[in-house]
Design a protein around this nucleic acid. Structure first.
Lengths: 168, 168
DNA sequence: TCGGTTTCTCTTGACGTCAAGATATCTTGA
DNA sequence: TCAAGATATCTTGACGTCAAGAGAAACCGA
């Protein structure tokens, strides 16, 4: 356990370079947020990899997963979907078009609102997203190999503290 | 101190929904990586805000900061810049074009390699990136308001452990 | 010294996203 | 009942990125 003192990553180099150029600044935030950004990028690549085995792309998973989480009958409005996935309406129209063309979702008229549409997971879409989610979890578990169970809990707690102000 | 038990964020909802639909899966990784992704998105927005005060965009800062960190005379090759910022060569050509048009960098022939070019920060570019970096640090410090100094150190250490496998 | 390979930068074409706007429908209050 | 505003979805045009490849120059082993 430990060896923290011996570990060095790319951000240590970056931070050291900044410290040399701007010794007047406190670089504490950089140590955290540069790592967070870079991890997020690496994570995106790992996700892409994991999903390619299941034959889908990351954006497809984002939409399918939102529908899957909604539970039976696995349907949400485009508006709800774009709020869940943080994209604009034009993007969501395009995504649903392509997912429908692949047979992973279908568009239904909303019986309660004639302006509205419901996007529903097909059986094929459900099988696809379930298999992709399992592949994702496996890939993410590898990502976490360097952390003990305790450390994983600590990290979860610390990240939640940062995220809470944005939730609500 | 504490109150961790009382905190709840958007990922707790997401995770709960998954747990309801897939009680057979261990969702530990989701608790960490969904938060990491979302924090990264919020961070991007905060960066954009911070930079808009200095009159630049995030992608401009990324390039200018790499040059600034290089130290006097603040010049790097396009190839080095694209490796630092993780974009493709076509993208870097476009970025340097636009930064040069704004007078923040200039292109010089590389005296040591006639294929090559050096991108150098202008005095204007240096002043711009310095002011933007200070604004960024201020914004990031606010982001960290919910964490004690000890917690910030813990988080830095845990993130470094995750990042080390990708460095080197 | 010469030929093949590597390295460096820029160009091109396709694609996904966004912002703004159009259209259709619903809701609300007078 | 009706008009005004809100809401839901789709359409359009512009833009930045990427992947692939072209062209020029450098490197290196024979």
């Amino acid at each position: 356990m430990g060896y923290a003192h011996a570990m060095r990553d790319e951000v240590d180099d970056l931070s050291e370079a900044w410290a040399h150029e701007r010794p007047d600044l406190d670089l504490g935030p950089v140590e955290i947020f540069s790592r967070l950004s870079r991890l997020s990028r690496h994570l995106d690549l790992a996700r892409r990899d994991a999903f390619s085995t299941s034959g889908i792309e990351s954006w497809e998973f984002d939409v399918l997963a939102a529908l899957r989480r909604a539970g039976d009958p696995y349907e949400l409005s485009p508006g709800r979907l774009l709020r869940e996935t943080l994209v604009t309406s034009g993007t969501m129209t395009n995504r649903v078009d392509r997912l429908a063309a692949r047979g992973l979702v279908e568009r239904l008229p909303d019986p309660a609102d004639r302006r509205g549409v419901l996007v529903r997971l097909t059986p094929d879409g459900k099988a696809t997203v379930d298999s992709a989610f399992e592949a994702l979890l496996a890939a993410e578990r590898e990502f976490l190999a360097g952390l003990s169970g305790d450390q994983q809990s600590q990290l979860t707690d610390l990240l939640r503290r940062l995220l809470v102000p944005f939730s609500g």
